[in-house]
Design a protein around this nucleic acid. Structure first.
Lengths: 239, 239
DNA sequence: CTTTTTATAGTCCTACTGACCATTAAGAAG
DNA sequence: CTTCTTAATGGTCAGTAGGACTATAAAAAG
């Protein structure tokens, strides 16, 4: 940051890449676009695009998110900067520095190719195959980040519609972590954390479920979980 | 990432900014350089510089770290990407996208102006005053990140020399968090976390301390803390 | 030798959590 | 209508982690 004039600097292209995650059919799914040209023609890639001259990366990410998902209103969606990927050879054509973002969606409308994406669709996170560029790495980083943030933040509600049952919330944890959780314990923990969820007064979800109808909850005002909701047995416990 | 040729894109300058933190005299301190020219002439700023054409941002950050600190070997230091700042008006001269990194140092040699930094020195984190550009924000983000990572990673050892006492390790937590911790409890917790620290067989620190000499420890192979070491009373506890 | 200082060891009690079991309320099957 | 199944909800119980606190050990300072 000192003495620009004394430096020669290369101009870089700056892009954003989006790891858009949702839960469909009990599986973690990713929004991907099919590349129509070289390099990596025919391969799936994360949606993204250039940051325009008067945009911040955040603004560009939200614009791309709207274009790729076709959603009218993306202002309420969770969008979070992941990290920046800047290896000199990550794009064979030119020097591209990419700021990656992760977005979480509750429901999952099939994307209409709103932007200029050749073909966009949801694919399961497992078996999304080798992606173009370094997008496998970006996607894995996004998964790691989300899995970790579920432990100590209220992020899980970002995967849920405005009103949801505790079973749906638990499914978020189980799907992202790939583990099963004890339902009564999960329930006790979530309800004991003030501000995580709020009961919707007289509502219950009656939509075709077979068992007892579940009570509905809304996301509460809290953002952090204290104490955290740790995933079971990541490595050897202490003591 | 699709159809570069169909897009016009603006070239951006890409820089790295470094929030280099250490603990000196029981206080959290930051490495800052004094700006010699407009804008923000005379103000303190985070060290940093342009990413060169054949470098990744990580490589550039490590190069700048070596230049600014004057340390011969920075390969062992903890260097971690923080996030990227890309507001269009963050530098009044031109469009600059900056990838911010946080580095942690154990001891703190006074920086010799190795690079072209007009004047570089350690300043206390509190009272580092308003910095140039958006560097106050970057520095605050770095502090938040480090404070959070102390809870669930073994990062604290990055602030310590190769061999350290548990008292020194506790001082890291207390300094970054700005809280006091109970010494026996901290000790019990750290020693119960396998892989956090390893005892150095027959060593004790005798350097002028007044009380009982403390045993020495090394950083262990673990990187994560399970269960985490939560800082006291951030907000209202649950239940 | 006594005091001070710091490290280390141990105790007690509460809260959180994992592993269970029981009950309730719906639909499905007979 | 009764019974079975399914899922939500309510509860128990023991093990454990962690906060508060006391006690002992080993050095320097007086």
């Amino acid at each position: 940051m000192k003495g620009y004039d004394k430096y020669a600097f290369e101009p870089f292209a700056v892009t954003v890449d989006l790891a858009v995650l949702t839960i469909r059919a009990g599986r973690l799914q990713v929004l991907l676009v099919e590349r129509g040209q070289e390099p990596y023609a025919g391969r799936w890639a994360l949606p993204g695009g250039f940051v325009l001259p008067d945009e911040s990366a955040e603004t560009a990410a939200r614009r791309e998110l709207a274009e790729e998902t076709g959603l009218a209103d993306v202002s309420g969606l969770h969008l979070e900067q992941l990290r920046t990927y800047s290896e000199p050879d990550r794009d064979p054509r030119m020097r591209v520095v990419s700021v990656a973002y992760t977005a979480l969606l509750p429901d999952a409308p099939e994307p209409r190719g709103g932007g200029d994406a050749a073909r966009a669709r949801w694919l399961p996170y497992d078996g999304a195959g080798p992606l173009a560029f370094d997008h496998d790495r970006i996607l894995a980083d996004a998964h790691d980040r989300i899995g970790a943030k579920l432990e100590y933040t209220c992020l899980a509600t970002a995967f849920c519609p405005p009103e949801f049952t505790l079973g749906e919330l638990q499914l978020v944890y189980e799907t992202v972590w790939g583990t099963e959780l004890d339902r009564p314990n999960f329930r006790r923990k979530v309800l004991a954390t003030s501000g995580f969820v709020e009961a919707v007064p007289g509502a219950a979800r009656l939509t075709g479920g077979r068992g007892k109808p579940a009570a509905l909850y809304r996301a509460g005002p809290a953002t952090a979980l204290h104490p955290p909701l740790l995933r079971p047995s990541r490595e050897g416990r202490s003591s």
